[in-house]
Structures are given as C-alpha cells and as structure tokens.
Amino acid sequence: MQERNPEFDSLVPGLPFSRRSFVGASLAAAFALAVQPAIGQGVVQTPADGLVVGDISVRGADGAVVPAYHARPAGAGPFATVLVVSEIFGVHEYIRDVCRRLARAGYLAIAPDLFRRQGDPTKIASVAEILNTVISKVPDAQVMGDLDACAAWAAANGGDAARLAITGFCWGGRITWLYAAHNPKLKAGVAWYGRLAGTASALTPSHPLDLVDKISAPVLGLYGAQDQGIPVSDVEDMRADLAKAGKKAEFVIYPEAGHAFHADYRPSYRAAEAADGWAKLLAWLERWAVGNGEWGMGSR
C-alpha cells in the first residue's frame, strides 16, 4: 500500500488551477507551479524595506553549488541564524516571505534549495510528479550536509554561529527533527506539521521517532488534529518518547487545523492558528537564547 503524503493530502483534488484565477500574474509567477494561489487567498506579503535580501550560492558538503535565498536586517550583526526548510515545492515565494518575516524579527534567515541536484519542483505542475521525480530521490544525508553548509555560510556573512536555529514546513518539518538529531550545536527548532514516522529506505534510513535519543536541541512541534497524513497518535508517541528520554520539547495540536495550516497561499490556510503558531515560534526562539529581542517586527 502506498504511504499517504501530507503534502498531497492537503491540496484540493481534481480541480486544476487556471492562471486567470490567480491573485495576480506577477505574484503568481513567484509561487511553485503546482500550488498557485487563487483570488481571495489572502497571501501574506512581507516587504523587503530595511532588509538585506537576495539569492546566494552555497557550496554543499559534496562540493555541489546549492542555491539559497537569505534575508536579514540591515546592519553589521551578528544576527541569530534560522535555517528555513521548505515544503516539497521548494524555495518559492511563500518560503522567501517566511525568511523576510524572520528578518523583520531580527534574524538572519536562509532557505536552501535542497532539491536542486534532483530537479526544480517549482517548475513542475503535478504534485505526483514532484514526489516521484524529485523528492523521492533526495537523500537525508545530502540534506544534512547542505544545512551544515548554510549554517557555515551564515556564520561567515553576518550570522552568529553560537545562535543557530531551524524551522521547517511539511517535508521541512520532518527535516527539522532530523537536523535536531544531527547537529549538536543547534540551539532550537520549530517543526510545522513534520512527519514523525515512516518506512525506512536507503535514502531516508530514519524518521524522527527513531532518533529521539539523538535529539539535542529543544524542539517545538506545531500540528493539526485534522491532518490526514500525520495522525495525532504519532504526535503523542513523539511527545511521550521525548519526555521519557528527558528531552526538551513541547507540542501544540490545533483541534480544527489540518495539514499546512500556516501556508497562506493554499486552501489549507487557517489564519488564527498560523498567527498563534508564529507567535509561539518567536517565543520559542527567544526562550532558548536564540532571539534578538526584536519583538513585534515579524508577522504571521
């Protein structure tokens, strides 16, 4: 039986989007082709005024060039660093906006294109094709190495190496947990509806529930009780296992939210839960000595 995939479950099935129904041609073009926002979606747009933003290239652990987007406040820093890990749709406008939101809260945020060696999901119109031709071929080890390389880049470009955090959405939520088990220098993580269990394979040998003993950083998990791909029982198992292992972690399960409730460009978006989760993210980073004390600058 094929495993359910939360990224796919949260999309509206059977209704191809028309480019004429998008919020606007210029804005729509900045989003992944498979998940374009529609009129009235209420996409959050964070301006870059007063920020340093742009595309960069980072040399991965294997020597490959990894494209990335970064945003930080203007000024010399050093700024606490937040690695931002995308959904399966790659570093499109939603993820770039998340980086700008973090920059407005005082952070240096960097979102690497972790799929580039395997393909560019932003240019693929079919979710199934993204999963089969790109995501299924991405090794966890490659991802961990690329995130390490981005942390090193940040430390050399205005970031504070002693204040490193990570946050990720959907596919990136799972990676957040894995990175908390991979990098002992990580100070905090916030996982948005990241999968906790799954079938082991050569490219994905372990899942978060397998790595509880290795998780070294405090992690906040934000989940929806109505998520059709991540059962609440998995979340409760992770909570119990982390507590038993003496790990620092907290979970919030929003009763009425499903998967991808923070994704303001998708039908799954829930504004109240997204805003509450974002406030909890900022508080979590501040709590674990990652924050810059710039309250009120980030939005949703």
Rank of each mutant, 00 (worst) to 15 (best):
Q2K: 15
Q2H: 15
F8V: 15
V12R: 08
V12Y: 10
S18E: 09
R19I: 15
V23E: 15
G24C: 02
A25P: 14
A28C: 03
A29T: 09
A30K: 14
F31V: 02
I39L: 14
G42F: 03
V44E: 07
Q45D: 14
T46Y: 03
G50K: 03
L51C: 00
V53A: 10
V53Q: 06
G54T: 13
G54E: 09
I56D: 01
I56C: 02
A64N: 09
P67M: 06
P67A: 02
A68C: 06
P73K: 09
A74E: 12
A74W: 05
P78W: 07
T81R: 01
L83T: 05
E87S: 10
E87Q: 07
I88R: 01
G90P: 04
Y94L: 09
I95P: 01
D97S: 14
C99R: 10
L102M: 01
L102R: 03
A103I: 08
A103W: 03
R104Q: 09
G106M: 04
L108D: 00
A109D: 09
A111Q: 03
P112F: 00
G119D: 02
P121D: 08
I124N: 03
A125L: 13
E129R: 13
I130T: 02
I130Q: 02
T133D: 09
K137C: 07
A141Q: 12
D146T: 11
D146G: 05
C150L: 02
A155M: 04
A156I: 04
N157I: 10
D160A: 07
A162K: 09
A162H: 14
R163W: 05
A165I: 06
G168D: 11
G168S: 03
G172F: 05
G173N: 01
R174T: 07
I175C: 13
Y179K: 08
P184W: 04
V190D: 00
A197Y: 08
S201W: 03
S201V: 03
S201M: 14
L203C: 05
P205S: 06
L209K: 08
D210C: 05
L220A: 12
L222T: 04
L222N: 01
G224R: 08
G224H: 05
A225F: 11
D227G: 08
G229D: 02
I230S: 01
P231F: 04
E236Q: 13
M238N: 03
R239M: 14
A240G: 14
A243M: 10
A243Q: 15
G246S: 10
K248I: 12
F251M: 10
F251W: 11
Y254I: 04
H259C: 07
F261M: 00
H262K: 15
D264S: 07
Y265E: 02
S268A: 15
S268Q: 04
Y269E: 04
R270N: 07
A271P: 05
A272M: 13
A275V: 08
A275Q: 12
G277Q: 04
L285K: 00
E286T: 06
R287H: 15
G293K: 10
G293L: 06
G298C: 11
S299G: 12
S299I: 13
R300E: 10
R300F: 15
